[in-house]
Design a protein around this nucleic acid. Structure first.
Lengths: 307, 307
DNA sequence: TTCATACATGAAAATATTTAATGATACGAG
DNA sequence: CTCGTATCATTAAATATTTTCATGTATGAA
């Protein structure tokens, strides 16, 4: 199997056995410490001695003694094991605190995260959160990203998925517009207002259909290429927007937007927290997920009272 | 099997696989370097990632990249492997040169080794020979001794045994005595000489029986507790000794002793070079053994011409 | 002597690793 | 665009290694 110049590195179990035996000077006791039988330790040490071609212990009547070779070899083994433990510690430390990189869409970042991150950071100073916004779903295989918030159906195989928020669509406008503009008592009043669209320009036609409203011209009004910009335009009093609940929730709670009428369109997608299975139970991932879910729960509770 | 605080150290194969893959950034190429299949490397790295609970590589379309975790972990692994290699090198260095400890009987040391060691040391300056003389056979299990010359039947199980010399018993005396003392033409002439005995005082009776000689009183003469002293007494011209071939060979070759008559008694024992199987093929052991055998061969050749 | 303790050992059982075959995906050349 | 090549992943089967189990041997104590 193995050839000439091959490196014959000993097995870790053999090295560990050697190290423990060298410390206890007893196979039996070492076996106890290693949670194996005495025979296993005996075999391991014997195998190591054979591999190295050197006797590591003097087997004397009642006691064990290291040979000169064993005495000289021991520190190398101790250092090697130490490095491995240090490596494991390094990985633990790095996973249990430090940087948490989260990928979200630019919209979610702008309308959901940015307004609340301060709260999270204040209560979790040990977590150094890094938000990376991208239109595409992040590929966990090729980026050092531990979790993401995604908009979709929640069907991502091989990922740990937690539902964050359902999504509904309903009209919103700024409180100023409601107070000072033309009346907005019923859907029909929209005829007197600017309709704000997203890039698809599909939402208003669908909503109007749901509201049995065919008296207004849904082709009117400006459109924006980012959902967040539609909402921001509404906040600025530019007109009436169709908001998606998750993204508008914060502005509704803080009174920058008000919800109009009582016609709500369920949206096909929802927001989900996803992470690779391997990192899904890391301390910092769990903490951030719990916080997201809590915030979303508060949003939902607040939304339920807006109409 | 393993519980809570258990140390989960990775297997060496997994670490080596990781290290090579990190260097090649290719499972396939790493597999070639490790002389295993690509699948084996894939399994190993996957297992390591699972054990550590961390992704070590980004698997991208065409290439592999270390994750941050992998990048940080790699140096620990390199150091650990390096320590292990250094340990192996240390053992190799210590076995391939440096000290060679040989256990022999005091007689063999005095009458065989001491006169020739200079030659060996001169031609093998890299070997630091340490001779330890003891009456008892050394216990390789409890002493840092790599080889021994033993007197016996050559039946030592578990040891590597090489025959060094047969043993014969015959009368010797100093050339001065032969030249200047009473005649020593035939065994009967021994009646006129002092017989030198070892502690057992058995040899002369047996030799006389073999020589069909019943005319002399074998109870005469001093005895010595070490065989070497019997020979030294003969060299000093104190009388005629029954020498054992191996121990007298050097003095015969250098003319300090002469062999008498033609009656030789085969001795039941011989001299053997023994060493633990593990160290029997070490460079320095092989060298010293070869030298011993060569010297013994020269002795035998020289002895064959003495009568 | 007999008991208790410690290490060695050989065969069987339990695990782990490696292979071989195949799948999936991406890239580049016609 | 399709094929051929190269890469990594995955599965079950073949191997190899490790551990246990059941003893064996030797020593020191009672």
């Amino acid at each position: 199997m193995y050839e000439g110049g091959m490196e014959r590195l000993p097995q870790i179990t053999a090295l560990r056995s050697f190290e423990v035996v060298a410390r206890c000077l007893s196979f039996t006791q070492a076996a106890r410490e290693l949670n194996v039988t005495q025979g296993a330790v005996s075999h391991q040490v014997k195998g190591l001695e054979k591999l190295l071609g050197v006797r590591l212990f003097h087997r004397e009547r009642q006691r064990l003694r290291l040979t000169d070779a064993g005495t000289g070899y021991l520190p190398f083994v101790r250092e090697a094991i130490d490095r491995l433990k240090a490596g494991a510690d390094y990985l633990d430390a790095r996973e249990n605190s430090g940087v948490l990189t989260v990928s979200v869409s630019p919209n979610f970042a702008a309308k959901w995260l940015v307004n609340r991150l301060g709260v999270f950071s204040a209560s979790h100073p040990e977590i150094d959160l890094r938000v990376t916004a991208s239109l595409q779903h992040v590929d966990f295989n090729s980026k050092d990203v531990e979790m993401a918030v995604r908009h979709g159906h929640g069907d991502w195989p091989n990922l740990h998925v937690t539902k964050l928020a359902r999504e509904e669509i309903f009209p919103v406008c700024s409180p100023d517009l409601l107070r000072e503009g033309a009346a907005l008592e019923s859907p029909e009043d929209l005829a007197q207002h600017v309709l704000l669209h997203d890039a698809s320009r599909n939402d208003w036609p669908i909503w109007c259909a749901a509201a049995n409203l065919d008296t207004i011209d849904v082709s009117r009004g400006p459109s924006f290429d980012q959902t967040s910009m539609v909402i921001d335009a509404a906040i600025a009093g530019q007109g009436v927007a169709l908001a998606r609940s998750a993204l508008a929730a914060h502005d509704l709670r803080t009174g920058k937007l008000v919800r109009l009428f009582n016609v709500t369109l369920p949206a096909p997608y929802g927001y989900f927290i996803v992470s690779p299975k391997a990192s899904s139970d890391h301390e910092k991932v769990r903490k951030f997920r719990a916080w997201l879910v809590e915030e979303a729960g508060a949003d939902a509770a607040a939304l339920a009272t807006t109409v």
